[in-house]
């Protein structure tokens, strides 16, 4: 299968500091790829680099086009949806406005139907439609962020720690829904997680990031069997 996203020798950082030291990886079309790593490994920075939110050097090819160096908004319009670190909620706006903003760059008539489809995945959002988004719980904001990113109708969905700050029951629910979305919509997903167990359960392919370098990659199933990963990241 051809790769939807190909990253080659990518460097990225903040100001003077370089965080990513020449990483290369790919995301297959229609699959779930996960990027694992400890705190501070550079997972969030990788996603920010893909979305043009940090200074980069190197090659990023998305759906056949070089997108490195483009503005964030143009990358989003090219079809990359991003559920960012911290969820990126428009706190002052209503839940409904947050959802409409997800589809703001679209011109097609299917937006209403798509929002209704999101209520199928996340019924709780339908109940809170008129509420100020800042008053939602962390889990509800996570659902809102996923729905908002999907409403862009992206070709690729970037997810930055969707399990962060959620109660275990809610984490299971969110991952169950992500699995549905991946299967039902053939959505290509790049998932960043600290919870390696969950991520490897959902993903086909996995990369392991350590202090800005990719140190291991392979099929998710075989990564699970790997002794080193097991000890450091899966904890059994």
């Amino acid at each position: 299968m051809p790769a939807l996203l190909e990253v080659n020798d990518l460097y990225a950082g903040y100001g003077e500091t370089t965080v990513l030291h020449g990483i290369s990886f790919a995301v297959a079309a229609g699959g779930v790829t996960t990027l694992l790593g400890a705190n501070g490994a550079g997972k969030t920075t990788t996603l920010r680099a893909l979305s043009g939110m940090v200074r980069t050097q190197g090659e990023i090819v998305f759906a056949g086009a070089r997108i490195a160096g483009r503005a964030s908004e143009e990358i989003a319009r090219a079809g990359i949806g991003h559920v960012p670190d911290g969820r990126g909620t428009f706190l002052e706006l209503s839940v409904e406005e947050n959802l409409r903003l997800g589809a703001i760059s679209r011109r097609d008539p299917g937006i209403k139907d798509d929002i209704a489809r999101m209520f199928g995945y996340f019924p709780r959002l339908a109940e809170r439609l008129r509420q100020q988004a800042g008053t939602l719980s962390g889990g509800e904001q996570q659902m809102l962020a996923i729905a908002r990113a999907l409403l862009l109708r992206p070709k690729l969905l970037l997810l930055d720690e969707p399990s962060f700050g959620l109660a275990p029951l809610l984490v299971a629910e969110v991952f169950e829904i992500l699995g549905q979305i991946s299967r039902a919509e053939r959505m290509s997903i790049l998932l960043v997680e600290q919870n390696a167990n969950l991520a490897l359960g959902l993903a086909d392919h996995a990369y392991l990031l350590e202090t800005g370098r990719i140190v291991m990659s392979g099929l998710a199933a075989s990564m699970r069997e790997n002794e080193a990963i097991r000890r450091s990241y899966l904890g059994y």
Binding site: E73, G88, F90, I104, S105, L152
Partner: peptide, 24 residues
């Protein structure tokens, strides 16, 4: 209006606004 909503979003949260494709 959509444009009005986009302008409010850009003012409140420019980072998130860019991620949904708003030309801030």
């Amino acid at each position: 209006t959509r444009l009005g909503l986009a302008m409010r979003a850009a003012a409140y949260n420019p980072v998130s606004a860019r991620l949904v494709g708003i030309r801030v």
